Amino acid sequence: MAHTLRDKKKLLTRIRRIKGQVQALENALEQQQECINILQQIAAIRGAVNGLMSEVLEGHIKEHLGAKEASFEERQADVEKVVSILRSYLK
């Protein structure tokens, strides 16, 4: 996956930010903070994960589905894989 290697630093930065948000959520729960603070942290984590998913998905679509050297059959198989992943992600 050339696009994930090319964007590795940026993706890892996003993942590290998500790890920090998850740690803040754990701390908030341990400190018995107000529900609204917990909900706000969960919403922030979800937004960050959605952004990560969007970025990797966009790179995959451009790099793999848009590849001129890929055959129609290869593209179709890849589309099916992406659709399957999106269905599980959106559940």
Results as ranks from 00 to 15, higher is better:
Leu52Lys: 00
Ala43Ile: 07
His60Ser: 00
Gly59His: 01
Glu69Arg: 12
His60Gly: 02
Val49Arg: 01
Gly51Phe: 02
Leu39Ser: 04
Gln32His: 13
Ala67Asn: 11
Ile45Lys: 00
Lys62Met: 09
His64Pro: 01
Ile36Met: 13
Val49Pro: 05
Lys68Met: 11
Asn50His: 13
Ile61Lys: 06
Gln31Tyr: 06
Gly59Met: 01
Ile42Asn: 04
Lys62His: 11
Glu58His: 12
Gln33Ser: 07
Val49Thr: 01
Gly66Cys: 07
Asn50Val: 07
Ser71Asn: 11
Leu57Ile: 12
Lys62Ala: 13
Gly51Glu: 07
Asn50Ala: 15
Met53His: 12
Glu63Tyr: 05
Ser71Arg: 05
Cys35Gln: 14
Ile61Phe: 04
Arg46Asp: 10
Ser71Lys: 09
Leu57Pro: 04
Gln33Asn: 11
Ile38Pro: 01
Gln33Asp: 08
Met53Asp: 09
Arg46Lys: 15
Ile61His: 03
Leu57Phe: 10
Lys68Pro: 10
Glu63Met: 04
Gly66Glu: 08
Val49Asn: 05
Gly66Ser: 02
Leu57Trp: 04
Gly66Trp: 06
Arg46Pro: 06
Ile36Leu: 13
Ala67His: 10
Ser71Ala: 11
Ala44Pro: 00
Ile61Ser: 02
Ala70Asp: 12
Ser54Asp: 14
Arg46Leu: 06
Met53Ser: 13
Val49Ser: 03
His64Asn: 14
Ala43Arg: 09
Gly59Arg: 01
Lys62Ser: 10
Lys68Gly: 10
Leu52Asp: 03
Ile45Glu: 01
Glu58Ile: 06
Glu30Pro: 05
Val56His: 00
Ile36His: 11
Ser71His: 10
Ser71Phe: 08
Ala43Tyr: 08
Gln33Ala: 08
Asn50Pro: 03
Val56Tyr: 03
Arg46His: 08
Glu34Val: 10
Glu69Gln: 14
Glu34Trp: 09
Val56Gln: 01
Glu30Ser: 14
Glu55Arg: 11
